[in-house]
């Protein structure tokens, strides 16, 4: 379990995350939604120690994320940001191997090779592994980064808007992959999502943020309602029931 205790962050007098306390479960898919500027990405960055906190603590199964050795944290928690920096001249396999760094410091063991192969296979990249990252399409590249964090083999997997730059088919495939990972592997997947319907269909739990605070927190049935969404986004919503899923419409 990841316990957030009154996390606060402001940029130049502007409060972005305002004393958020919550618990992220050690299994299942948890989505964080909310309008632009709600503080979702900032929150995720603080939980994954990419960003320092102004106040508050993050406890990762008994480990203080901001004080523990970075490598210790990296064995339990992986984070994928949307604007990943692409190193020059790196192959897909080499990139995925970097995910083993917390376990091997770069000297790969047989277990590492197995984990890399498994991650590549899961992301459907086994045939592309010798290709340079810059030769891939946007969707393939995103999958390579996902394979890297999968190879890290952590209990928690945090992703910041992983669907950006993916078309419908690839976006759906990635959500299915994350769902399977959680179901079969017991990984706790936490993502920031812009598309509420992906959140609605694939999540066990949805956390809605607005103005740096958590305003709704519960199952899709509890959060994907006309009343709750209108409150979170400050705009009218309709929610339809389609084949057992709750689909929000906000186009008119």
């Amino acid at each position: 379990m990841i316990t957030l205790d009154s996390l606060t962050k402001s940029y130049d007098d502007h409060l972005v995350v305002d004393g958020v306390s919550l618990e992220l479960p050690s299994a299942g898919v948890t989505s964080i939604i909310g309008p632009n500027g709600a503080g979702k990405s900032t929150l995720l960055s603080m939980v994954s120690r990419l960003l320092g906190v102004d106040a508050g603590t993050v406890d990762l199964d008994g480990l203080d994320v901001h004080r523990a050795p970075s490598r210790e944290v990296a064995r339990r928690l992986a984070i994928l940001r949307q604007d990943s920096h692409t190193p020059a001249r790196i192959t897909v396999r080499e990139l995925v191997e970097l995910g083993r760094h917390p376990h091997s410091k770069g000297r790969l063991t047989p277990a590492c090779h197995a984990a890399v192969d498994a991650a590549l296979a899961r992301c459907d990249l086994a045939d592309l592994d010798r290709r340079g990252l810059h030769e891939l399409s946007g969707g393939q590249r995103q999958r390579a980064y996902v394979a890297m964090v999968l190879a890290q083999d952590t209990r928690y997997l945090l992703l910041d808007e992983p669907l950006n730059s993916l078309d419908l088919v690839h976006a759906t495939a990635l959500m299915q992959l994350l769902r399977t990972l959680s179901d079969e592997h017991g990984t706790s997947v936490v993502l920031v999502l812009h598309d509420i319907n992906y959140a609605s269909v694939h999540s066990d739990r949805i956390i809605a943020m607005r103005d740096g605070r958590v305003v709704r927190d519960g199952t899709p049935e509890e959060v994907i309602t006309e009343e709750a969404l209108s409150d979170v986004y400050g705009a009218p919503f309709r929610v339809h029931h389609l084949d057992g899923d709750r689909i929000a419409a906000y186009y008119r």
Binding site: L50, S70, I79, H85, P87, L98, G99, H101, G106, Q152
Partner: peptide
């Protein structure tokens, strides 16, 4: 050299895989 390899992921990527950036 191996830490430099990881550094090529950029700050966030490197911290993500546990490098003391």
């Amino acid at each position: 050299a191996r830490r430099l390899d990881v550094l090529a992921l950029g700050r966030d990527g490197a911290i993500g895989v546990g490098l003391d950036h």
